[in-house]
Design a protein around this nucleic acid. Sequence first.
DNA 1: CTCCATTACTTGAACTCTCAATCTCTATCC
DNA 2: GGATAGAGATTGAGAGTTCAAGTAATGGAG
Lengths: 174, 174
Amino acid sequence: MFKEAFRTVGHMNDEPRWLTAEEQLVWRSYIEAATLLEDHLDRQLQRDAGMPHVYYGLLVKLAESPRRRLRMTELAKYAKITRSRLSHAVARLEKNGWVRREDCPSDKRGQFAILTDEGYEVLRRTAPGHVNAVRQAVFDRLSPEQQKSLGEIMRIVAEGLQPSEAGADLPWLR
Amino acid sequence: MFKEAFRTVGHMNDEPRWLTAEEQLVWRSYIEAATLLEDHLDRQLQRDAGMPHVYYGLLVKLAESPRRRLRMTELAKYAKITRSRLSHAVARLEKNGWVRREDCPSDKRGQFAILTDEGYEVLRRTAPGHVNAVRQAVFDRLSPEQQKSLGEIMRIVAEGLQPSEAGADLPWLR
DNA sequence: CTCCATTACTTGAACTCTCAATCTCTATCC
DNA sequence: GGATAGAGATTGAGAGTTCAAGTAATGGAG
């Protein structure tokens, strides 16, 4: 991005590897789609479920977990957000009565976030509409090959950004 | 998302079309990668350029525009954000001295956002680092075919979410 | 020329997110 | 067992975003 504007400027020739024209187009498309999509889903869920997309994701993770509960740090890890952000989010969801906290008996520092029945009910009511929105925006528009491809690509990108998944507990191997 | 939990519940059989197992994996990968990526770039730019990714994008659009200026609405359209959001953003960028506003002579309601020399300088200084971050996170990890594929896919998704691009001025055709 | 629906943009309040503390508890080292 | 580095989680302040409501100018229609 931002190649042409500088082409005639620098001559120290440690010129950075600017994106090619094709790469720029790809990147632009990605940014646009990601922005529009997140926006779209945020609005859809804000309207129909009274929460942003991230919060909805948290409820889903909890619903999928044994006993509908997860330690805060676990939940943060799964949702790819910071603990701080999660703290604020859970505080809000707690206020809504969709999540409650419970102390971890084995580690007094720990907290469980637990999906309440009310929270589960919200999911049950709004999940169909949300799946539908996702379908309409994404899956209904892509061929099976494209869907597969998208999955592979995004898995690669995600892994590259993961705070060292494999060997995370073996730091000397890095 | 959130399929299994309900499989045994509803029997009115207007059952929504839940995502298949494969679709769920794709969707999960997408969300994770998009979250991690936007986060990563936000941090990178906040650290090196003192602004979030969206703001950086605004400066880039301005830099690419004739006379380094764009009407507010145009800029908002290109960046896929609301006018409100843009107003706040430009206010901030103005405070930094990276953008200034100017009245539109032909339409007294209109405003130009204009990239200042200082703003241009910030871009010049920080663009290489940012391109590098994007390469590392995305392009260096994908094969040419995957890059091409990503571009096509995201273009399709973006077009589907566009507030009616084609025929936007011919509403009766919709 | 006068309405007035529409367009361009801004504003403020409520909400969300980030970042840098902070607090408590755990585990390790000797 | 006492010191202390680190882990788990929260907090508050500042920055960014959304949403609804606002101001001001435009462009027809009659």
